[in-house]
């Protein structure tokens, strides 16, 4: 079973890979829209990648108010 810290770290690594930014520039409190400079379609592609990686299902409506990596990690952790 992953810890929340591990889940958060994996999310940051996957986001960095997908959007080609340095991993060390990302931190759990970052707003991923602003930090990654992504739009809604790109956010959906990240969501797909996270679902595939963690083998979870994340209904979009559970993420409507989520914009930072830490909260996103919490939502994923709740479904692991």
């Amino acid at each position: 079973m992953r810890t929340l810290a591990q889940t958060t770290d994996e999310i940051l690594t996957l986001a960095a890979q997908q959007f080609k930014v340095a991993r060390e520039t990302l931190s759990p409190n970052d707003d991923f829209f602003k930090t990654l400079g992504i739009d809604s379609l790109q956010a959906l592609s990240l969501l797909t990648r996270l679902e595939n990686h963690f083998h979870v299902e994340l209904p979009d409506y559970e993420l409507q108010d989520v914009s930072d990596f830490g909260t996103l990690a919490g939502r994923i952790q709740a479904r692991l």
């Binding site: 809604s40 379609l41 979009d60």
Partner: peptide
């Protein structure tokens, strides 16, 4: 102007 117009 939201980055989220496509999110349901």
């Amino acid at each position: 102007n939201s980055p989220l117009p496509y999110l349901p």
